[in-house]
Design a protein around this nucleic acid. Sequence first.
DNA 1: CGCTTACTTGAGTCTGGTCAAACGGGGTGG
DNA 2: CCACCCCGTTTGACCAGACTCAAGTAAGCG
Lengths: 251, 251
Amino acid sequence: MARIARVQARRYPCEKCPLRTLEIFRRFGRRELEFVSRFKTGELVAEPGTTILAEGSHSAHLYTALSGWGFRYKLLEDGRRQILNVVLPGDFVGLQGALMSQMQHSVEALSTMLLCVFERERLWEIFRDYSHLAFDITWLAAREEQFLDEHLLNVGQRTAEERVAFLLLFLFSRAEARGLTRGATVEIPFTQQHIADTLGLSLVHTNRTLNRLARRGLIAWNQRTLRLVDRKALSALAGWHDLTEENRPYI
Amino acid sequence: MARIARVQARRYPCEKCPLRTLEIFRRFGRRELEFVSRFKTGELVAEPGTTILAEGSHSAHLYTALSGWGFRYKLLEDGRRQILNVVLPGDFVGLQGALMSQMQHSVEALSTMLLCVFERERLWEIFRDYSHLAFDITWLAAREEQFLDEHLLNVGQRTAEERVAFLLLFLFSRAEARGLTRGATVEIPFTQQHIADTLGLSLVHTNRTLNRLARRGLIAWNQRTLRLVDRKALSALAGWHDLTEENRPYI
DNA sequence: CGCTTACTTGAGTCTGGTCAAACGGGGTGG
DNA sequence: CCACCCCGTTTGACCAGACTCAAGTAAGCG
């Protein structure tokens, strides 16, 4: 059975939130900061492989990822798994579960994650008293929808090679905006099985496709480290257009 | 070139909104009704095939569909098209475009559609003064995200037969909740090409798959009319679980 | 050192794609 | 009224991208 993540005492005060220094995130005012500070009830450390939110459950919490990598996914009865998106620092997790009766997807940690914990009960206070923050939450939901649109286009219409290229550029760009890259290199705690389950490909075919891209001098993928050897060519192959992640809100 | 839909003078007052009678939609209070009534600036009639919102544009409007069928989609440079979702009465359209700098997908009418027109400029007023409505908008965004999650799971993990079965059940259920079905029958203004572009299949294979399902006595599909001959068997094939669309908000 | 997990590679198969042609109904203009 | 055309659907033949099965390698860890 999957291990479950564990809540721990709060450490970072919101005023010193590690996300605050990244320029992709918008800053917020004193009043909002004070509220979020009270809204936050603790921190969660999730070890790799632990389930943060489970499909079918009705979690009492909402989270904002502070560090580490995770992913959202859905399962079919027979075990087929579709990875829906990665969860990166600044991502708000569990909104669906807070608005609907239960979670329709699960969230699992890929690397050790640190998350901010909020009470779902108090979500309504945000809408009532902090319209700016409510707006931000809606913005984040719309943004996630955009990513899903892109992802669906990718899986539905592109060839295996294009799909892999697109996904790698997507992951790299999101990591880059959070300062997780060094030059053309990122460490992505994905196995090839994760890539396969994200793209709707088999593990074997994913492996062959990655190796083909590597042999053609577009990428290098070793020990979960991705290097974009020829970003231009890769972008052309994938039909990639840069993301604009500036001024992203977070809660 | 695609024809563009045309705005026309307002006809239905919000108090007599045709959606109001459908029990899947939640009712709202006097004060909200008044506001929405002022928020609404007119109505749009879109003929089949017209573009309501175009990718890359920065529309000044937001819409709520009142009647008819439409669909959201994205295109690749070479013309490959991915249909992201259908637009049905009660669906809120254009939120992404209102929050972000531009639309990342297009919306086209399948049948003649009637839409409520709102000014995007005034979206902020909702968040500032009508937190209940703001909450509803967020709910709708989260709901759309859920549909996309399901759709991605479908396209990424299921076989052609399962995909088709799932899509037909999805379309039927959503239509059913809006009173658009008669018994086990719905008229869906989709061509087989639309189904193919929704599921990431070729037209030919979609046709063969539909016929195979028909010959097996699960469905009937003629002149854009779908009949669920054996809904139970179809659901089993698709791994379908019923939607709960009750108490859905709308603006 | 043995076990486990992830990655690789080969061989054979099949689901689903492509190309091409034909069918059928509805609309239109001569 | 008929011929033609257009659009959507259908069918056949062939092809290939991606899958499955299977076995082997490499790296990390207790």
